[in-house]
Design a protein around this nucleic acid. Structure first.
Lengths: 167, 167
DNA sequence: AAGTCTGTTCAGTCCTAACTGAACAATTTT
DNA sequence: AAAATTGTTCAGTTAGGACTGAACAGACTT
């Protein structure tokens, strides 16, 4: 097997790709890598392991985790008698992400709508701003569709569920 | 009228908001402001006016315009006997934007699918990566819906539907 | 031809968010 | 009690993209 196709190499690449991809969504790269690691590994991961395996400072892990928890993508668990915190994907992180995107588009649309309402009626910018708002409204609606679609396949694909064979 | 509600103040605010909003989409802020100005003003705008009104260097305008042209959001026009270039919104910039978003999600999904195919069949990461890919696939599909919706409203209303803030 | 006005390029600067790591409080271990 | 280990905080550094502005080539004006 070529050493770029070992599970470990694929895992590393996936984590790195996730970091870049989530960076484009406005999260720090390390937060994306944390998420990637949690997705790939599945089982809960210790705070210390995140820092050592991703080779970043504990401070970075702490702040990344905080962001991911705030967004509802990751949950923290503890265990009596064990000092480290553990982390794993939240229950349905993808629905949460979609809802977040939807919310941002909606806010932007409302912002534009507010501008439209304050403009003098005869302003010829109004038509163009309406088209602009319509753009965000259509993304908003589309996210609703995506959410529905995602929920439909939720029984098979929830964040933390064990994987069913076959499929 | 409060001076934050003059057309000019609203225009400036809109341009600035558009800059921030597009920045979140991965464009430089100035490119977003250029787009905002083109949306608001409607008629074509001269290269020099972009630089002076937005108070940025010609170099910045040049590179921002290049980005916006590459994305198919803006088109350049010239006029015989006039040395300056003029710019205006491309024909259906919003559909183009949606298609761009869709394309990015699709690429990411394909990337994940490739990883899945290279993993050993018994890897228990596969289920989770499938769920992850499904997330991007659902956005892809949703963008298709949004595109259809946008095209439909374009023919019927030509950007004339009323927009209200909130729900 | 000389001068003016274009838009583009690119080396350098600036900005700012990401990241580090030391200090810290809290808890557990020895 | 002392030492070790945990996660958080925050002042300082780093990295990298955004932006500037001088230099430039091309086209027009005089």
């Amino acid at each position: 097997m070529p050493d770029t196709h070992t599970t470990d190499a694929l895992r590393t690449r996936f984590i790195e790709q996730t970091g870049l991809s989530l960076q484009a969504e406005g999260l720090p790269r390390i937060a994306g890598r944390v998420l990637g690691m949690l997705i790939f590994d599945g089982e809960r991961v210790a705070f210390g392991d995140l820092a050592t395996q991703l080779q970043v400072s504990r401070g970075s892990i702490s702040s990344s985790i905080r962001l991911l928890e705030e967004r509802g993508l990751v949950k923290r668990t503890t265990e009596p008698g064990v000092r480290q915190d553990f982390f794993q994907l939240a229950d349905n992180p993808y629905a949460t992400m979609l809802a977040g995107i939807q919310q941002r588009q909606r806010s932007r649309r409302d912002e534009i709508a507010k501008t439209i309402n304050l403009l003098p009626e005869e302003s010829d910018a109004i038509g163009r701003l309406r088209a602009h708002a319509q753009f965000y409204a259509s993304i908003d609606a589309a996210m609703g569709v995506a959410l529905a679609q995602l929920n439909a396949s939720e029984e098979t694909y929830v964040g933390q569920q064990p994987v069913k064979p076959g499929e």
